[in-house]
């Protein structure tokens, strides 16, 4: 193969809540082990796009989608695909940190393993994932303490560790740093650099500098339309669309 394989390929995706269509036909490719940033003003369909990729969107009553979404060239929405199985391959980190408040730090990380009935005490996996999430040194002495005792930034990195523990192939991150302070944000961004060696990452962000810093490719959504997608450098320095240029230079949004 000469070109890098596409991990994900989206063709003509439409998505709706009841009668309200919120994504009007989006097509883009995401190469394996790359970071795609999704930018755009609030309410333009970024989260919905992300949630179509792990089929969380269809869990909202009345919500649905059409079009083709391929993961490793296989249709995500084929009848043979079990969405529960799929979500173990496509992990997700949410905007607000949501560790399980009734579980300890270690058990939060191993929650997905217990779900999959992986035997053992998971201590190794817990350590590896907490190290990957750059949280190990801060929590190694209190793995059995409740997760709710951590700061917001630590909780978010714990959620990343939890998502990594089931060894997904793709990691979806919906504004993972928007509730964090600058130091915690920098840690999460460093982490994304690390993780893209092994995972394909799709990150929604409101923050233009963040998109420029962490991503290889960028997609700009506006009012449910995928206006433009391409290499991050091109989107930020020489976009093809006037609307993209206006947005990335801060003329609106």
């Amino acid at each position: 193969m000469d070109a890098p394989a596409n991990k994900i390929s989206v063709q003509g995706l439409k998505a709706w809540f009841g009668k309200n269509e919120v994504i009007h036909g989006a097509s883009l490719d995401i190469p394996d082990r790359s970071v795609l940033a999704i930018i755009g003003p609030s309410g333009c369909g970024k989260s919905t796009f992300l949630r179509c990729l792990n089929r969380m969107h269809e869990l909202t009553p009345g919500a649905g989608s059409s079009g083709k979404m391929l993961l490793d060239d296989r249709d995500l929405y084929a009848a043979s695909v079990d969405p529960v199985e799929l979500r173990r391959r496509v992990g997700m980190v949410f905007q607000r940190p949501n560790p399980f408040p009734t579980m300890s730090i270690a058990r939060n990380v191993s929650a997905g393993l217990r779900l999959n009935r992986v035997p053992g005490d998971h201590a190794e996996v817990v350590e590896r994932c907490l190290r990957q999430a750059a949280l190990w040194d801060e929590v190694k002495d209190r793995l059995d303490a409740p997760a709710t005792g951590l700061s917001g930034g630590q909780q978010q990195r714990l959620c990343i560790a939890r998502a990594l523990a089931v060894e997904p192939e793709v990691l979806l991150m919906d504004e993972p740093a928007s509730a964090l302070d600058p130091i915690a944000t920098a840690k999460v961004e460093d982490l994304i650099h690390e993780l893209k060696q092994r995972y394909t990452i799709v990150i929604v962000t409101h923050n233009m500098q963040q998109a420029a810093r962490v991503s290889d490719r960028t997609a700009f959504f506006y009012l449910g339309e995928l206006v433009e997608s391409g290499p991050t450098e091109k989107i930020f320095t020489n976009p093809s669309e006037q609307r993209t240029e206006d947005y990335v230079t801060g003329k609106f949004g």
Binding site: L86, R87, R96, T102, G112
Partner: peptide
């Protein structure tokens, strides 16, 4: 029970029932 906890379980690959066992019932115990 916050909806975010249910979503956290579902995103890990829990079925609806597993999400209830893992997040909803312990929280509401």
């Amino acid at each position: 029970v916050p909806a975010s906890l249910r979503e956290a379980s579902l995103a890990l690959g829990a079925t609806r029932w597993e999400a209830i066992r893992m997040a909803v019932l312990p929280f509401g115990r």
